[in-house]
């Protein structure tokens, strides 16, 4: 019996950014409006497999999801042993811009989750004419740390186990067990210190609340979508961000946690489709 392949295609390409060379892994499916997906801190693009496999989306959107350098199947730089990984605003923006440029994307939509939901604010302010729209999943322009990052990267605590155990608090209790644990498995597989390095951006370097009022949502519409049970980027954080970004459209997703696309794909679809419908009408 022939196997039934899933519709997404995975490929590698070389990306030059910041004077370094990275072998990047990306998956894509569909045709139409470019929809570039950004995974959460400490995870990888597998989080978007349900979006990539959804014909209701890929019939209209060219969905692309790539693993950031140091994540998933993308390589760290060749001299990675000589540095501690630390994501910065500047570095994160440079990677996304380089990917958009390498793939020659025209008027892409960027949908980022968590730290990906933060960086889209930076991108929308910097280059509103280029992007068709931004979707910030579990995104806020400012968050406060609530645990010491050193717990994530030390020899006497298993990094994968503790990372999964930390973020399991951010999954809704009503999300299907299968997808809860698939989401956590990605965290168990992260490279040493990578989640910690991403949280440097998310908690310490990426604050944007002072610039949120400068975003022109007429030029680049912004959709904020956050889960009821997200204890990291809480509904309150998202609503406060929406207050600062004039014209941002906000959805609080009942029964959802911090990982909508991977922890409860069926429920997320009910929230995402209306947003994509609206974005598809933007001229």
């Amino acid at each position: 019996m022939a196997v039934e392949f899933e519709p997404m295609i995975g490929r590698y390409f070389m990306l030059e950014v910041g004077g370094k060379s990275y072998r990047i892994y990306m998956e894509e499916a569909g045709r139409g409006i470019p929809l570039l997906c950004l995974h959460t801190a400490g995870s990888d693009a597998r989080q978007f497999r349900h979006i990539l496999a959804d014909a209701d989306i890929t019939s209209r959107f060219r969905v692309m999801a790539f693993d950031l350098p140091w994540h998933g199947k993308s390589n760290p730089p060749k001299d990675f042993r000589n540095e501690d990984y630390k994501l910065t605003v500047h570095g994160y923006k440079a990677i996304i811009n380089a990917v958009c440029s390498a793939l020659e994307l025209e008027s892409p939509v960027v949908m980022g989750c968590s730290m990906g939901g933060r960086i889209v604010c930076h991108l929308a302010l910097e280059n509103p004419a280029y992007f068709r729209a931004m979707i910030a999943l579990e995104g806020a322009d400012k968050l406060e740390p609530y645990y010491n990052l050193d717990w994530l990267y030390r020899p006497d605590v298993h990094g994968g186990d503790v990372q999964a155990a930390f973020v399991s608090s951010q999954v809704a209790p009503t999300s299907p067990d299968e997808y809860r644990w698939e989401t956590l498995w990605h965290y168990m597989q992260g490279g040493p210190g990578i989640f910690k390095g991403d949280l440097h951006f998310y908690w310490l370097d990426g604050d944007f609340d002072d610039r949120s009022p400068q975003i022109d949502t007429a030029a680049c519409p912004i959709y904020l979508m956050s889960g009821e049970y997200d204890c990291s980027c809480t509904p309150e954080h998202t609503l406060a961000t929406a207050q600062r970004i004039r014209g941002a459209k906000t959805t609080i997703m009942d029964g959802m946690g911090h990982f909508p696309m991977s922890e409860n794909p069926a429920l997320f679809k009910t929230y995402l489709i209306p947003v994509l419908d609206e974005i598809a009408t933007i001229t």
């Binding site: 609530y146 399991s168 809704a172 209790p173 009503t174 049970y229 204890c231």
Partner: peptide
């Protein structure tokens, strides 16, 4: 069985 938000996990209870 379905705990309210903020009470659903010890690490959701800590920051609050």
């Amino acid at each position: 069985v379905t705990p309210p938000r903020d009470y659903h996990d010890i690490f959701a209870m800590l920051p609050k």
